[in-house]
Design a protein around this nucleic acid. Structure first.
Lengths: 318, 318
DNA sequence: CTGAAAGCGCTAACAT
DNA sequence: ATGTTAGCGCTTTCAG
């Protein structure tokens, strides 16, 4: 019995011949190790819980990255828990705690800091893609402020001055990005042109912001948007109403999702470096679970991915 | 010890006073039942595995519905396994089998029928949103053919005759929808106008199809698209190039996702009746696991949700 | 209605 | 290098 265990765990203590023999026998009788029993018995279950919002396609890329990172770590399994309107991050986390996950990775959680901090008292928590004032929880995030600054710099370098920002409302990261935009406009001496338009995280939010933008007089010639989805919504709504990117308006997104590359006009976007973020998050989760490190913050440097949605300022304005 | 078990399972055998007392004590010492141990011990674990594609937002709605359905069933838990390019449905299912799920719900699986049938020999499998010739697996799906027929009928009733179809390539359901389109065009005596344009399941696929569409001479005045995402991609691409819905072209989608309602022009779409589909799928999964029914197919009647993306044929053509 | 004992399938620490 | 044994935290069965 322990022999099978040794073989399936790839643990030392069996000859190669035996391994082959055992695996063949298992194949014949249709044996498959029981992960529940495994998790239950092991001192360190190796189970890492992942809380994500099933409606946010940006989270999809992160979940993917976490799976890939987990594959490189033997004995680490992922347990997924979905968040959606009607089931918040805390509820999802609760289910994972019952499964005795060693650590929790929460992607862009919406619940207040206090509730996350309380969770962190029970289990190591790594928050991804959201800034947080909570020393007891790990944070892995891109420098949102810097990301928005990169976008502004890019637009300024193209000659734009009337650069607006469509923000993300109360979405994770929105406040930081708004701040980055404002700071950078000021740094360029463009504070008089600073214009923050209320938005959100969905394409629909972007479209709604488009309506507002069209009514501005004079109209901004460039827009740095909270995320790709809203940027695409904005771009399409404007295009639909005759204001096309990049000729009539330059637009930047954020997240560098697959959608950005495949948009009607491929979207210039700020990349969060998904792979780096996910492998860092998982490594930290495991290290924290094993008591190998203290909670802290890892801030990742964003990178601007230039595509076709921005053009030099033409001077003709609108 | 058994007392706690009785209380937490809401099983008979304890007075109300005791229940309160036990729960209070649990609260005080921070006790939380261990689901791993529970699953391991129980004869019927109540664990249902869900295989979904994390990149397909249409799956998100189904996952949501499954969670909601599971909440109404005591003792039923969901285990999620994500599929993405590089991790196919079979791989995801394998992980769930190790967890000894009692049944598997696979959402729009991409792998061949044969592999699904093989899985179904090991565990009851319910396939959602994909037609399948495999009597040993349960199927819960909308009548794709009829759904496309509804879209065609709607466009015909608005006076359109040059109605094209942007198909879904090799995506689950695409073949059926294509067939439904062709059959219905024939039924209306419009076979000479039938025009199937190669597409896919993403917004980008829709945009690419838009380019093809613009080159058709004469140009179709209406398009029934494989799904909402591609329809939105198509609509935005055409709008961007001056061909606006619904004035210049009428467009229908499929799936009635949240994106359809929030599109630049709210999209008329064929609804798959998510809630009915998910509650049916989960009920069948549990029933099959408990041996309470035989595998079979449940075909759900689609429903057309009319929004603003279609208009009467103007006669002016393009 | 409440407590004690057995055992789910595995792993870890032993003995052979 | 291989076999034996105890026990992870629960549920189930049986006594009290």
């Amino acid at each position: 019995m322990s022999l099978a265990s040794i073989v399936f765990r790839d643990a030392p203590g069996a000859s190669d011949a035996t391994r082959v023999r055992v695996r063949a026998a298992a194949e014949r009788i249709g044996y498959r190790p029981d992960s529940r029993a495994r998790w239950l018995r092991r001192a360190q279950s190796g189970l890492i819980g992942v809380v994500f919002n099933v409606r946010q396609q940006f989270h999809a890329g992160l979940v993917e990255g976490l799976y890939q990172a987990a594959e490189t770590m033997p004995d680490i399994d992922l347990a997924l828990a979905a968040v959606y309107p009607g089931r918040d991050d805390a509820r999802a986390a609760e289910g994972l705690l019952r499964e005795r996950c060693e650590a929790l990775i929460m992607i862009g959680p919406f619940i207040p800091t206090g509730r996350i901090a309380r969770l962190a008292q029970e289990v190591p928590v790594v928050v991804v893609a959201r800034a947080l004032r909570a020393p007891s929880v790990d944070r892995v995030r891109v420098d949102d402020r810097r990301g928005c600054a990169l976008a502004v710099d890019h637009l300024v370098s193209l000659g734009h001055t009337r650069i607006a920002h469509v923000d993300g409302g109360d979405a994770p990261g929105a406040a930081e990005r708004r701040r980055g935009y404002l700071q950078r406009m000021r740094a360029h001496g463009l504070e008089e042109f600073a214009d923050v338009i209320g938005g959100g995280a969905t394409a629909h939010d972007g479209a709604v912001a488009g309506r507002v933008l069209l009514q501005r007089e004079p109209r901004p010639t460039a827009v740095a948007v909270f995320n790709d989805l809203a940027a695409i919504g904005l771009m399409n709504w404007l295009g639909f109403h005759g204001v096309r990117a990049p000729e009539a308006v330059s637009i930047t997104g954020f997240d560098d999702t697959a959608e950005a590359a495949g948009a009607t006009v491929p979207l210039t976007s700020v990349s969060q470096e998904l792979e780096l973020m996910t492998s860092t998050a998982l490594t930290r989760a495991v290290d924290r679970a094993r008591g190998r490190c203290e909670p802290g913050e890892v801030v990742i440097e964003p990178r601007l991915v230039v595509r076709d949605s921005c053009a030099p300022y033409s001077g003709s304005g609108d």
